[in-house]
Design a protein around this nucleic acid. Sequence first.
RNA 1: UGACCCAUGGUGUAACGGUAGCACUACAGAUUUUGGUUCUGUCUGUUAAGGUUCGAAUCCUUAUGGGUCAACCA
Length: 558
Amino acid sequence: MEEAINKEERSLNFLEEIIEEDLKAGKYEQIITRFPPEPNGYLHIGHASSICLNFGLTKKYPGYTNLRFDDTNPVTEETEYVESIKDDIRWLGFEWKHELYASDYFDQLYAFAVALIQKNLAYVDDSSSEEIAAMKGTPTEPGRDSPYRNRPVEENLELFAKMKAGEFADGSRTLRAKIDMAHMNMLMRDPILYRIKHAHHHRTGDKWCIYPMYDFAHGQSDSIENITHSICTLEFVPHRELYDWLIEKLAIYPSHQYEFARRNLNYTVTSKRKLLQLVNEKHVVGWDDPRMPTISGMRRRGYTAEAVREFCDRIGIAKRENTVDIGLLEFFVREHLNRIALRRMVVFDPVKVVITNYTGDEEILTSENNPEDPNGGLRDIPFSNELYIEREDFMENPPKKYFRLAPGQMVRLKSAYIIKCEDVMKDADGKVTELRCTYIPESKSGHDTSGIHVKGTLHWVSLKHAINVEVREYDRLFKVEDPADEEGDFKAYLNPDSLKVVTTAFAEPALKTAKFDERYQFLRKGYFCLDRDSSPSGVIFNRTVGLKDAWAKESKKR
RNA sequence: UGACCCAUGGUGUAACGGUAGCACUACAGAUUUUGGUUCUGUCUGUUAAGGUUCGAAUCCUUAUGGGUCAACCA
């Protein structure tokens, strides 16, 4: 209820404003949007933003969203990508009305081209790619007409049919719109509509050897599907003039294009070409490497769909260039995980603790699964006289405000007892091998009558009950904010410490039954999830994101 | 030396001619059996110069800065 009120109070973005005006004016009864990926790579966080926008709009307003694969370039597109894209959209929590392909419209598009030729608004050009480029002019100089520009309609028709019939070699001819070679907008200087590519298409096979260009496919597909609001990114602004021109000349359903600024995230790259390089050159283990900004990477890392959606929602959309701090994404991930993650204890870098006055063999203690969730229940944790704590939780000569273990100092073991460090054992190199401690029997968690108050609480595991697990700790993939903007190869700026593997961490036994769909908070460490590389013989956890660490900040100041 | 798009704290985004707000970050404090969470408070902003107006972040002009456009890619 409260949430609904908050949402209504949130102001509209510029697209919502346009839609509300359109709806109010009775221009449309419902709106239809589309998400139009090209199946030549995996979806990334930028696409997530577009997905949330397009699908979100038709959740908020009457209408629906189509999934349309923009598959007009057979040489780069593959069915493998189609499947991953569908998985990613579903994982994000959205469902499309129709699954469509631009290639579904190849016959229709061909007919549109013929119609344009008949209206003397398109012609077959025999010029080479280089010649066309040379005649194109520059942003400051007008172009020149092609010598083939004034071919008779009949000849164009015949030539275009022969292009389709496969009588010409790749690149030997194109179909061009006849607009204006002196136009200020370079895209209006007789843009190429069709090119010859004798290539196998992932859906239409070898039926076609001519394929429409983006500008002659996208807007037309929108129109065929009666898309009301065709939303794309800013770099397509100059295309809008051509988009509208083609729809007008073809006299087809007038879809409209609107542009917003793509979201950029710092410390990563989102160009498909660059991501592909990282995968192909094995800088990461694959498209779903947890360090990748891909949706599959974020999913494997343990980000939740809720968190990603909330992020996309809260950063909003606008028309200005922007770079969003990756820390903001992490904030939403923590916010969600804090609510749902089961608390567990795992010691990454152990040092042994012996409780010298613990007379029993062992006992079973309990601890809450999630202090944020009153209905989360409890779990059992075995306690014994031999424990592991984190090596960094002990210091022989602690600085001020160090609340952890030190000679003569006391700390609480989470959900167990208060212990006091009595003696430090070291090896020949001076490395601490064992801490001899005493415990306060009356300080048992939940039944503490000791009256002792300690500042520090540590996580721990019982040595003989602990299970061995592998932990993969991830950090940002790049060490600079904008790798693409730096001098030279962007790969020179990869963060060499983006993955740290701890192969011998010790986990409390409750983690034996860890499940893939559960999220965990390893106390004082961060949020973790089971990696898909896990097997019964080798349990592997990914660090989704660390906890905020005030002590790390405090100690850095010194 | 063109056309088009854009300009609000460190970041992202509101304010639709009438009190510059929200979130994150940073900082300070309270609470805490996670140095987590939660709570309270503080710092920081309308690119500039003119104009219109009783009143301008908002409208106009110019300047400045950033982005896009010369793929048979999308």
